[in-house]
């Protein structure tokens, strides 16, 4: 907080200038998505397209049209359910697993950790038919749980390793002290380690959210019914046999980013808290 009130040095303004320059390049594709959503595509399909929206033809009509003619709200809601379900389950499972991999390093543990990563080396496209078999025989096609569960299975190998990395960063002397105080292992984990892991938890949670939010293969295969479509399947539906509704697709694409952007903003305090945990460690 004190940094906010401190007087800005020229160096700080320099850093801001650099940040803006870097963001301009990195975010150009997003900017161009916005442009495509507000400018009719025929005006962009020329050898010298306008780089800022022309005042006379730019409009947000595409957004209104998409909101009116497509159930974007429903798609976003379905995606939100899948994403939250996946991320919450993954984070619990992978905190336990990551702690175990970090603190107990027997040969068998190592092998299992490696097997986890190994399981992710087969492309999803090869696994998708058997995955479909499983859920079809369980009568779980068009069921949100099927997509949540398979996303958990796809995410957990990564998030477990990620959590392990964060647990590694916490000196084990801290738990030792707690356990000497008579805490059991699980209570130590919950009361001592988890609070220190907040930046790690936030990072891992975000990671799981991003994977689940972006999932297209599982969602389109396991929930083909349009009332169960997630936002990614919805976006793909703008690509037709004979034409692509570019402005609609980009408008939906922009709307699909908003929930994740909100997540990033919420994440911010957790990352700052990381500083606190770091000083505890020091």
């Amino acid at each position: 907080m004190s940094t906010l009130t401190r007087k800005r040095t020229p160096q700080q303004w320099g850093l801001l200038a650099i940040s803006i320059a870097v963001l301009t390049v990195l975010l150009f594709p997003v900017y161009w998505m916005v442009m495509t959503s507000v400018v009719p595509s025929r005006e962009l399909l020329t050898s010298s397209p306008p780089l800022v929206p022309p005042a006379d033809s730019a409009s947000f009509d595409a957004y209104g049209e998409v909101l009116e003619s497509r159930p974007i709200g429903l798609w976003l809601w379905n995606s939100t359910l899948v994403t939250l379900g996946t991320a919450l389950i993954s984070i619990v499972i992978s905190t336990l697993g990551g702690y175990s991999l970090s603190r107990f390093r027997t040969k068998a543990q190592q092998a299992m950790g490696f097997t986890l990563l190994f399981s992710r080396m087969l492309p999803g496209t090869l696994l998708i038919i058997p995955v479909f078999v499983i859920f079809a025989s369980a009568g779980m096609i068009n069921n949100l749980w099927s997509v949540i569960l398979v996303n958990v299975a796809a995410t957990v190998p990564f998030t477990t390793w990620l959590m392990k990395g964060f647990v590694d960063g916490i000196p084990s002397e801290i738990e030792e002290a707690a356990m000497i105080d008579g805490c059991g292992r699980l209570r130590t984990l919950w009361q001592v380690i988890v609070p220190l892991l907040r930046p790690g938890l936030a990072t891992t949670f975000t990671y799981a959210c991003i994977l689940a939010w972006g999932d297209f293969l599982f969602a389109r295969t396991l929930m083909p019914n349009p009332s169960d479509w997630t936002i990614t399947v919805g976006i793909a539906s703008f690509i037709g046999e004979f034409s692509v509704d570019w402005s609609g697709l980009m408008a939906a694409g922009i709307m699909s980013m908003v929930p994740m952007l909100i997540l990033f903003v919420f994440l911010e305090p957790f990352l700052v808290k990381g500083m606190a945990s770091g000083s505890v460690k020091g």
Binding site: A136, R220, P224, N225, A236
Partner: peptide
């Protein structure tokens, strides 16, 4: 009667036939 996006239509049907459903 429901819509499956054109881009993934054949892949989706292939999955279903190969899975026996």
């Amino acid at each position: 009667f429901y819509q499956v996006p054109f881009d993934s239509f054949v892949a989706q049907q292939t999955t279903r036939f190969a899975a026996g459903d």
